[in-house]
């Protein structure tokens, strides 16, 4: 018998930020993701790992309202309405949510940046979209964010075309975070970057996410990325979540055969 009796007073349930229930999406015969359910709390970072074709990107696209599920619901804690099914919102409401309370960092910066608009304009766009009409303030905020993502202020009027891949990715992050979203979605945020650049980006992301208390859903095939960023981990295979839990628990004590394979396949440096 244990000397410690479990408390009568159960810690109050947290109000989740997002809740997915039984989400499935297929493309004809091809399965995207199958019966995925989870709850995301405010400020929590969830990593989704799996190999190409495991359905992790499909899941991310559904969660971020870019793709509607065949069945299942995705609810989000709207600022004034509480938990609401994002696919039952009107399109303008959903679009507003996506450009204010959410951020989406795409794997390819070209999908997330306006390449013909200056760095400052890229960062300022969301502010102008929610009604900012003071040039000086928009620019100051833009410069502030460039500094936060370690971009030189002298590049504020340069077009992202002239930036390196790592810089473009950091600009994309600044562009998304400027409206102080509560949730950001990241699809392979370090994909296509040099290893040295990856470390810098990860460290930056880790700092920003913690400092601002932002919740995040990060899709990646790189276990080092989730080790550093994610509180929790979901391992996907053939469209299903085969294992989930605390990141270090899943990586250090994997139970599912596929997770064990995944973990044991990583080269130790």
């Amino acid at each position: 018998m244990s000397a410690l009796m479990l408390s009568e007073t159960v810690t109050p349930k947290r109000q989740p930020l997002m809740r997915a229930t039984g989400v499935s999406k297929s493309y004809g015969e091809t399965i995207g993701c199958l019966d995925v359910s989870f709850t995301l709390n405010p400020g929590e970072v969830i990593g989704i790992v799996g190999e190409s074709g495991s359905g992790k990107s499909t899941l991310l696209n559904v969660l971020s309202a870019q793709l509607s599920p065949d069945i299942g619901t995705v609810e989000y804690d709207l600022r004034h309405k509480g938990m609401s099914d994002i696919f039952r919102l009107s399109e303008p409401d959903r679009r507003r949510l996506m450009r204010t309370d959410w951020g989406i960092v795409h794997q390819n910066p070209r999908d997330g940046l306006r390449m013909d608009v200056s760095a400052g304009g890229n960062v300022g766009e969301r502010l102008m979209a929610i009604g900012a009409r003071h040039y000086g303030e928009i620019r100051a905020e833009g410069l502030d964010w460039l500094a936060k993502v370690e971009l030189n202020a002298s590049r504020v009027d340069d077009k992202p075309r002239t930036f390196s891949g790592g810089m473009q990715q950091r600009l994309q992050i600044a562009r998304n975070l400027v409206t102080r979203p509560r949730l950001i979605f990241m699809d392979e945020p370090t994909g296509g970057l040099d290893v040295s650049v990856q470390a810098r980006l990860l460290d930056l992301l880790r700092g920003l996410v913690r400092e601002l208390g932002i919740a995040a859903i990060v899709v990646t095939h790189d276990l080092a990325v989730v080790r550093l960023l994610a509180d929790r981990l979901m391992v996907m295979r053939h469209g299903r979540v085969v294992e989930e839990g605390l990141t270090d628990q899943v990586l250090d004590d994997p139970h599912h055969p596929y997770t064990q394979l995944l973990v044991s396949s990583v080269l130790q440096v």
Binding site: L4, L6, S7, T9, N41, D231, G245, L246
Partner: peptide, 16 residues
């Protein structure tokens, strides 16, 4: 704190 937490069955955020 004032609680006793069962680590095996706690929610991830509780463990954190």
């Amino acid at each position: 704190g004032k609680d006793v937490v069962e680590l095996g069955s706690a929610e991830p955020w509780q463990v954190i």
